[in-house]
Design a protein around this nucleic acid. Sequence first.
RNA 1: UGGCCUAUAGUAUAAUGGUAGUACAACAGAUUUUGGUUCUGUCUGUCUUGGUUCGAAUCCAGGUAGGCCAACCA
Length: 553
Amino acid sequence: MIEEKGLNFIAEIIEEDLKNGKYKQIITRFPPEPNGYLHIGHASSINLNFGLTEKYGGYTNLRFDDTNPVTEEVEYVESIKEDVKWLGFHWKNELYASDYFETLYEYAVRLIKKGLAYVDDSSSEEIAALKGTPTEPGKNSPYRERTIEENLDLFERMKKGEFGDGAKTLRAKIDMAHSNMLMRDPVLYRIKHAHHHRTGDKWCIYPMYDFAHGQSDSIENVTHSICTLEFVPHRELYDWLIEKLEIYPSRQYEFARRNLTYTITSKRKLLQLVNEKHVEGWDDPRMTTISGMRRRGYTPESIRDFCTRIGVAKRENMVDMSLLEFCVREHLNKIAPRRMAVLDPVKLIITNYPENQSEEVQSENNPEEENAGGTRTVMFSRELWIEREDFMEVPAKKWFRLAPGALVRLKSAYIIQCNDFKKDGEGNIIEVHCTYLPESKSGNDTSGIRAKGTIHWVSVSHAAKAEVRLYDRLFTIENPGDEEDFTRFINPDSLQVIQEAYIETALTTAKAGDKFQFIRKGYFAVDKDSSPDHLIFNRTATLRDTWEKESRK
RNA sequence: UGGCCUAUAGUAUAAUGGUAGUACAACAGAUUUUGGUUCUGUCUGUCUUGGUUCGAAUCCAGGUAGGCCAACCA
C-alpha cells in the first residue's frame, strides 16, 4: 500500500485547522449535478471528500446540485447513489440544493433589502454586451438603480410566475469594472418555467450555481468545500455572498481535476458518446464511467487505490492509463480464481492417449492465496482445444510454446511433444498432433523432464461455450478531450466479440459480476446480461505480456 | 493584451530552508507448471535568470511556458 507521509495540501490545511482548534470536526460534501453518470474523475473527488472525513473525523454529505431542472433527471440521481455506495462510501445525509429553495429565496430578499441585489430586465445578450471583457470594464445595467421596494416587488412577481422565461433576472450589485468577471453583477436567479425532478412545478425561478452552492455548503455547516480548479475565480463571489448574507462561513478549496490518457472525463462528451450511439450506454464497459468500469470488472478497491495513488494537487495533469490498469491487475491477481478458457481454438490431438478415455486433473484456484485457494477438478481427454497463437509452425527465437518437435506442459496435466500438424486448403493450421508422457502428470511427475513452456487448454468433449468480449481503449490518441471532433479518434477495435470461446466446466455456473483470471489471457468478469444459457465474459484487463514485447523486437 | 492559478524523471506525486525520494512506465536479470505473480538491479528530474541565506525544489523579484475567467450551465 501507499506510504502515509506526504499529505496532500488539503489534508495539510485540515490538520492545521484541527490543531489550532478552528474546527472540532470537519464536514465535507460530494455535490454532483444529476445530469449524467459519475466517471473516474468523480471517483477522485469522492475518494478525497469521503476519505478526508474518514481519516480526520466528521462526515460527508451527498448533496445533489439540482438547480437546473432542464438537464437533471431522477435516473441520474439513482445512478449516482448506486455508484457512491458501490465505491464503498457512506454519506451522512442525502441532500438536495432544491431542499433549500425556500431559504435561498429568503437569502435573495435579504440581499435586495441590503441594496446588494436588483432585478434586471435586460436580455441575456444585453447582459453579455454590458459585461465587458477580461481586458475592458463592463457598464452598468440601466436597471441597476431601481429602489429596494421596486426590486422586492419585482422579485416576488418573478417568483409568482408573472414573467416569461428570460424576461428578468436577479443580479448581485457588486462592481461592473471588477477585474474578476464573476464579480460584475453576477446573475443570482433566472426564470425557468420548467418541471423540476423534485419540486415539480412549485418554482419558476431557480438560483444559479453561485447562489446555491456556497449557500448550501453554509446551511450544512460544511467546513471544507472542495471543488476543482475552474472554480477558483468563483471563490471571491463565494466569500462575498457568505459575508453579505452573514451566514456560516464555509471555505472553498480547489484542486486540479484528474485527466486520464486515452479517455474523456467530460459529462457533456460522455453524453454525446451515448446519444450518438458510439457506445451502448453510460455503462458500456469501454466507458470510464463508474458504472462502465463496474461492468467491465473493475473492483471498487482498485479504483480507490488508483485515486489515492494519483493524489491531489493543483497542477495540470495527465495520468497514465497504465496506472489504472496496474491497480486493477494488482487487486484481481489476489482475488480472482484462475480458470482455463480458449478464445481462438485449434484442435490438439494426443495420439497416444486412448480414445473415449478421460480423467480428472486438479488445478489450483489461485496461487496467490495461502494453500493456493484450493483446487478444482478439470477434465482431460484425448482431444483438446488450445490457443491458436500457442503453436508456431516455424518457431520464433526464444519461442518456448508448441512447435514441431517441441515439448510443452499442459497446465495441471501432462507434458506433450508435438509430432505433426494438419492444414486446410488455405494454409491454416487445423490440427496439432502430439504424444504425451504418461509419467509426467502434474503433482505426480516422475518423468524427470522439464518443459520450458506451459499452455492452457480445454477438453473438447467437456468444453462449454461462452461469448467473450475483448475490450481495448476507446480512443486512439492520448488526449481525445482536446479535440473538437473527438469521435473521429474512437478506436475501431475497442470491442472485439468472440461468439464461441471454449471454457472449462467450472465456469458454467458463473454469475453476473463474478471475476476470474483466464490463465494466460487476462482478467474477465461476467457481464450483467449473461445467463446460464448464454454466458458472457467481459475482459477487464489483459495480463502483462512480456512475450508480446519480445516478439516485436 | 486585465485578473487569477500552476511549474520536481516519460507520467503522477513527496521532500514544508539542511542527503531530491516513492509509485507507474521503460530497460536488464533471477525465480516460476500462467512469457502472469514475486524478487533484484538500471535509466531518467527541481522551467529560466537574478536575489536573500552558511545552505534554496522550498523564500523574494523578473522572465518563460501551460491553464482558467467574457452561459440566465455546474
